[in-house]
Design a binder for these strands. Structure first.
Lengths: 194, 194, 194, 194
DNA sequence: GATGAATGAGCATTCATTCAT
DNA sequence: GATGAATGAATGCTCATTCAT
């Protein structure tokens, strides 16, 4: 519905660019409006307030993100393959979108606690995808049957997130996508010798 | 030098309390001064500016943190034992200090990018402890010899951090310390069946 | 001319309702348009600007007001009777129209100085009715021959207005109409004992 | 207490000047600060917000006003003399203070309903002075024993207020003080011939 | 005539930092 | 060293008005 109004996405896309290039605290509404090519007041025809832009940004982009990952892993059979595809797609999408990588890994984290709680609600969708893979893996016997699902999910998400953040903080100097396979190996096998 | 001056730590301790109880964005210098029992201006006799308080806070507290962990793991022999002790101590220290848990996991993350980069520099000390354990594990043959040290470090830190953050966000409803052993298991063994 | 166009009065009536129910400063043009069942832009086909709505509102409503009072007092012979009828009609009309009472006594007073000056020009018509009664009273000998007409007019208008305002501010808790006779007595006799 | 702080009254006096010269809606905080010779932020060391300046202004000035009137009428014996002195003092004080006359009669009336209600609370003090005179007059037999005190008070206040407002709206072209006696006469004698 | 999406000027308030005492 | 009163830059949001359809 909202998405049919071209200015809605236009403003969200502008927000991503402005936040990525100026930082969260320097992303004034007027700057976003200018980048979007609309008047300041127009922003408020599509968003309740500034925070609403950021939440919507996250919802829209994270929605696409999860959707694309789900599409990709749908074609895979084993939990292990699905996990690999998930990591690869995650790394691929952020490698392809420099601005979003900065915004999600660095800038949006400095939003206030309340906004972060709402962002976490959006993240739930992603965490559920991870949990589903873990459960499947346990059922098929690929994964250890006494695996604590919540902890495993935290390990997987925490590792992926930390890997991407490190990469962004190192100014994306190396190939993130190349890390997908070793990270996957690590998550499956752990540090221990087998 | 600075540390000999009693007001230095007094202000840092006040900052922890004020940030934990009011949130990062509601932690005005005047509030910290009041909590510390000094005048606003006095702050500036000990710290260059507000950011300097936060960096110093992190340096002092993280310094203690790493020191305590190093002491604890010094008594352990194998890398596996050291890793377990590290996780246990990490969880223990934050379980014991409600204020610091909130400040490090939630509040300080909403500082600006520059401050976070400096905080990361402080974190280096902790990451080196992790790396040293990994290297030792590889040398002794406990850990896989083709383990990528940086990735393993990111997995270990990412998993621990995500676990603590989840715990704080869930209002510390469950026993964090009890998770040390399963998290340790997970990091050593991974998700896969053995 | 304008008055033949049905939307003209439709918008004015909407303005009365919106101002009475939301207050002067919350009576946005868009709200008036919505209440009138027209588009925002349509307002500007009938009124030059927002101020013009308010002035027109006052002119139209005050015009009716004075007209009705003049009709009523036309049937009376003595100045004293005319004054009583005027007060009674004034009180009656505002008692009957809750919205107008609020708008004229409370809300329209918080318009800016310029608008209030224009409103005063409209009030002239009413003040002239009062003056005519005073002059008649002086001629027939009912009123003191050395009565200062302007001052007497200010007393009469000021007293009536203050009485109505008090009544509106007290949320119209008592019967305003019942005060017509004593107010009239008061204005005729003054405070002095005779 | 507050009044000992010189800047408190300095800011209030500045507000009177700025409002009188620019109008209520053009009296920005920064303009008041500039007129007072302080920084914008300093205002907020002495007042909670802009509205607080206006309420305080009214309280301080009205307080002085009522005080002076009470002093003046204290020396008078009869109710009639007290009423005259009250009117004279009222007219005198506003004649002497051009800015306050504009502010109280025109500008402050366009404040929002809530502020006006608070202003009315302050006015209570003045209305009580009037009521006391009326009651005294009734007791001594100067005034009619069946005088409705509330209505009489509304007549007296309404007449005085309307007279002053008319004078201010006519740009203070004539001598307000000269009207004290005839207004007094009018209020005492009423319009009726004796 | 009627619409309603788009415009953009304007302002109260906070708070890190300074500096005279 | 310690104080705390004073500073002033910086910004999200509203709403009367326009004008292309």
């Amino acid at each position: 519905m909202k998405k049919n109004k071209p200015k809605y996405m236009q403003i969200i896309d502008a927000a991503v660019i402005v936040i990525a290039e100026n930082g969260y605290h320097q992303a004034q509404v007027s700057k976003i409006a200018k980048q979007a090519g609309v008047a300041d007041g127009t922003i408020y025809l599509y968003f309740k307030n500034k925070e609403d832009i950021l939440i919507s940004l996250f919802e829209e982009k994270m929605g696409e993100f999860v959707e694309k990952i789900e599409e990709k892993i749908a074609g895979k059979v084993t939990a292990e393959e699905k996990l690999l595809m998930m990591i690869e797609t995650h790394f691929q999408l952020l490698s392809d979108d420099h601005h979003m990588a900065i915004v999600t890994q660095l800038e949006l984290r400095q939003s206030n606690k309340e906004l972060r709680l709402r962002i976490n609600a959006v993240l739930k969708g992603y965490l559920q995808v991870i949990e589903k893979i873990i459960l499947e893996g346990k059922e098929t016997g690929e994964f250890s049957s006494d695996l604590d699902v919540r902890l495993a999910r935290q390990m997987i998400f925490g590792t992926i997130d930390e890997t991407v953040t490190s990469w962004v903080m190192n100014e994306e100097k190396y190939d993130l996508l190349a890390l997908a396979s070793p990270v996957h190996r690590l998550l499956i096998d752990g540090c221990g010798k087998r």
